[in-house]
Design a protein around this nucleic acid. Structure first.
Length: 110
DNA sequence: GGTGTGACCAGCT
DNA sequence: AAGCTGGCCACAC
């Protein structure tokens, strides 16, 4: 009965986040649902928190909440760094909110 | 093995 | 209208 012998939920989250195309953003709920745990949206954010030491190169700045608000911007070391990174990829942000969210939104199942 | 937690989501007051 | 609480799941101690 193998437990999570190969990879943990966190690793899955990292993989999904890492495959987010440049110039696109995803949401915690979408990633959690893609992994099969719709209600584990909080876990995704938590995985990101751990990702700092697990995988610093993880583009966590491309992950926002369901309405496109940079909820975790404060966790990047600098509150404005997340927005700057997103704008650098061509994503427009206003008041910590992603503009044209429906257009830049990327579904992991897509 | 129980408890706490967490960058959410949705509903209730 | 806006704020808050609960629920949800998986991981760490």
């Amino acid at each position: 009965m193998k437990t999570h012998d190969e990879i943990s939920f966190f690793e899955k989250v990292y993989a999904v986040v890492e495959m987010i195309p440049r110039g696109r953003v995803s949401t915690y709920g979408a990633i959690a649902a893609y992994l099969g745990s719709k209600g584990a949206s909080r876990m995704v954010g938590w995985a990101m928190n751990n990702s700092h030491k697990a995988d610093p190169s993880l583009p966590a700045h491309r992950v926002v909440n369901r309405i496109g608000v940079l909820t975790g911007k404060h966790h990047f070391g600098s509150p404005g760094m997340m927005q700057q990174l997103l704008e650098n990829e061509g994503i427009m942000i206003k008041n910590d909110q992603v503009q044209n969210f429906s257009e830049v939104f990327w579904d992991p199942g897509s």
